[in-house]
Nucleic acid binder design. Structure first.
Length: 730
DNA sequence: CCCAAGGTATTTTTT
DNA sequence: ATACCTTGGG
């Protein structure tokens, strides 16, 4: 391919980025500015102009979807698949490294990946073992503690509790958890990255090999990297330092799960001689929408700075609808969707975005009422379903019998007379001898420790596993899956246990799993990486269980959270629920950094719209069962009035049907605004029969739903429903 | 072993 | 409101 044609299709800064020299480059790519295009063209440039071997290029993304999109677009541009080129997610690449070097990574050859669900199960069990009261020590807290430490690259050995009891406990749990995983030959998501970082760090020869191999490293969505991923990149890029990072600090919305916006903000400092290129021309949204986005994001501090512009028309103003309540909001939006459909838009071109998942409900109800097709993104994914995970657990045991989490999951599923007591015996023995549950069960049977009935049941289970592994080897993957579903009686179990729709859905899913196995092809690049077909499928199931992001299919209205909307675009976008306490979320109101992340989230939302953006908020909204009265979001006020078209609500009939609520609304509002509620005010000292004395720190709701948040001297903060709490003023 | 009742928490989510 | 989980009884 000739050089000019590669650059011809690009604008000036894009060209500059694609054809930049061999040094660290940061591309600040605004929303809709063609960042994937730049990445793909950069790779083509390296291959065709710089004559870099595909073998020495590594491209890293966060999601499987982004990775496959990139792969597809590279193939399209080159008109052939780029063999030898590594394109994958952080986890996918780490996984590949670990498979290739399992011994150096101190892993069993058939190690398995566990998801956060499995992780939590393990922790629950371990914490029970450590005799920790689960009310005082919630396993979820331990889980997030462990994951956060791993994301920071910290092992338990290097944590110094310094007398802090809480940290001492967490370290104890972290250590026990690590041992348990190691013993079972399983690794969690964060472990995958940490383990591969350590693999490289501790093996000079390996490190040099990969540092020399990957002369060019490209990263997408750089603003989302966490400490560990960043360290991993720096280590791997350490020799050539040819890092090509693409990202947008204004779209960093994953700080709450460890992403460090500082990584992009400090790129220049960390990598020394770098070049920063800004892609500011937007090819997506019309002028007014962009102006609104720019005006909003201007309120954030510490930005790297960037101003989107478009050659496009100003287009429509941003519509703003002030709804009476959430139902009014939903009806208005859906009425507009119907109108848009009539004037020729497809449902699939329309998205409703919201801050939290619970907001989708009211829309769903009205869509159902009107018979309009819709799709909600971000539900339970296929491979996360219980019946699928049950089946996979059997398959995992067939592949690695020491996989304790899987053993625990299916040892008595379907019920086969192995009760809690028996399992406890097996666990006890396993613990005492530091062996896996499967091994323990085997020994226990031979030693005839258990009562005969339990013993027989366990023997039956072990035999099932044995038969399974011997039979399975001669079968094709989908036959293996089918074999397991049938011989373990899982299918029969679901058929019997859950009659009706739910059970049928489960059976369908099991059949679907067989089809998935049948259609499963694995990357030939993995063939030599110590992977058999089954292992590859199991890894795929955990690692790429995805498809929770939008894909257009049937013509239906798209509904999703703002987080799920990142990277997507729609001609018509409804941004709903712009109220204080909801968006920005109440949890983020008191912290500047978090508030700024909410603002970036809003920025992401606005920039999803191509032609028309409609923002809405409700004066009152039912949240957690009680009515709240929120002010319009501060973000609305940050958009200049000249860009907004405020829509006068028509006095709809249903409004008039609810005069009682309206009165209640007025009363509550007058009370709520003064931060008082009936007899109580903020700051009032009160006493409670059970919790003792405290100070009221917040009030909300009205009538029977009125609640007060009380900061108790002994018990801490609690929300109490005034009607029941019987608080006494002091 | 299963079911019902009661208690509790309820932002965002990929791998 | 509601979904999820725990716990207690049959």
């Amino acid at each position: 391919m000739d050089v000019s044609s590669l650059l011809d299709q690009l604008n000036k800064p894009q060209r500059q980025a694609v054809s930049a020299g061999m040094y660290p480059i940061l591309v600040l790519a605004g929303a809709g500015s063609g960042k994937t295009r730049v990445l793909v063209h950069r790779i083509a440039w390296l291959l065709q102009v710089e004559h870099v071997s595909p073998y020495s290029i590594l491209a890293v993304t966060f999601t499987n979807k982004a990775a496959s999109e990139m792969r597809g677009r590279i193939s399209d541009l080159l008109q052939q698949p780029p063999n030898g080129l590594w394109v994958g997610t952080f986890h996918g690449i780490a996984h590949r490294l670990l498979r290739a070097h399992w011994q150096d990574a101190r892993l069993p050859q058939h190690f398995q990946i566990i998801d956060s669900d499995d992780q939590l199960r393990i922790l629950r069990r371990l914490m029970k073992l450590l005799a920790l009261d689960k009310d005082k020590w919630p396993p979820r807290k331990a889980q997030s503690y462990i994951n956060s430490r791993k994301d920071e690259g910290i092992r338990p050995e290097s944590i110094e509790p310094k007398g802090d009891f809480y940290i001492t406990q967490m370290v104890k749990i972290y250590t026990a958890y690590e041992n348990a995983c190691q013993k079972s030959g399983v690794i969690d998501f964060a472990e995958m990255l940490l383990r591969s970082l350590e693999l490289l760090r501790d093996n000079t020869a390996l490190l040099h090999h990969y540092q020399h191999r990957f002369q060019h490293i490209l990263i997408d969505e750089f603003q989302d990297t966490n400490t560990l991923q960043y360290a991993w990149l720096r280590l791997l890029a350490g020799h050539y330092n040819n890092v090509f990072a693409v990202g947008d600090d204004d779209q960093s919305i994953y700080g709450w799960r460890g992403a460090k916006i500082e990584n992009i903000q400090q790129f220049t400092e960390h990598f020394g001689d770098t070049e920063t290129i800004r892609l500011e021309q937007n090819y997506r949204s019309s002028g007014n929408i962009l102006d609104a986005a720019n005006a909003l994001i201007k309120n954030n501090t510490g930005r790297l700075g960037k101003k989107l512009w478009t050659a496009d028309q100003a287009g429509h103003l941003v519509d703003l609808y002030k709804a009476y309540n959430e139902s009014d909001e939903a009806r208005y939006i859906i009425a507009r969707i119907e109108r848009a459909k009539e004037s020729g838009k497809n449902y699939a071109d329309i998205a409703i975005l919201y801050r939290s998942n619970a907001q989708s409900r009211i829309f769903e109800m009205i869509f159902a009422e009107k018979g309009i097709a819709y799709r909600v993104y971000g539900g339970l994914r296929f491979f996360d379903r219980a019946e699928i995970k049950d089946t996979l657990s059997y398959l995992r045991l067939a592949s690695n019998r020491h996989d304790d989490p899987s053993f625990e999951r299916v040892v008595n599923l379907p019920t086969r007379g192995i009760g809690a007591k028996t399992v406890e015996h097996i666990r006890e023995y396993a613990r005492a001898h530091n062996i896996s549950l499967w091994h323990s069960a085997k020994v226990i049977i031979d030693a005839a420790i258990l009562p005969p009935r339990a013993s027989n049941a366990v023997r039956g289970f072990l035999k099932l596993l044995d038969d399974m592994s011997t039979h399975i080897h001669t079968l094709a993957l989908h036959e293996q899956v089918d074999y397991v579903i049938e011989t373990t009686l899982l299918k029969a179990h679901y058929k019997k246990k859950e009659r009706g729709e739910k059970g049928e859905a489960r059976i369908d899913n099991l059949n679907e799993l067989v089809s998935a196995a049948e259609g499963f092809r694995y990357d030939p690049e993995d063939l030599h990486e110590n992977m058999d077909f089954l292992s590859a499928f199991l890894a795929y199931a955990v690692l790429e269980s995805g498809e929770s992001q939008a894909s257009h299919g049937d013509d239906c209205v798209q509904m999703m959270t703002l987080h799920a909307a990142k990277g997507l675009e729609f001609p018509l976008v409804f941004l709903s629920g712009l109220e204080e306490n909801l968006f920005p979320h109440r949890m983020s109101l008191n912290d500047t950094a978090r508030l700024e992340e909410e603002r970036r989230l809003c920025y992401v939302g606005i920039t999803r719209a191509r032609e028309q953006l409609v923002i809405s908020y409700a004066e009152q909204r039912r949240i957690h069962g009680s009515v709240q009265y929120n002010l319009a979001s501060q973000f609305i006020h940050e958009i200049p009035d000249v860009l907004l078209n405020e829509i006068r609500p028509s006095v709809a009939a249903y409004r008039l049907q609810q005069p009682v609520r309206r009165t209640a609304h007025r009363i509550a509002r007058s009370l709520g605004d003064g931060h008082q509620n009936g007899r109580f005010t903020k700051g009032q000292r009160v006493s409670h029969i059970q919790f003792g004395e405290g100070t009221i720190s917040d009030l909300e709701g009205a009538g029977n739903y009125a609640r007060a948040q009380v900061n108790f001297d002994r018990e801490g903060r609690k929300w109490l429903v005034l009607r029941y709490a019987k608080l006494k003023k002091i």
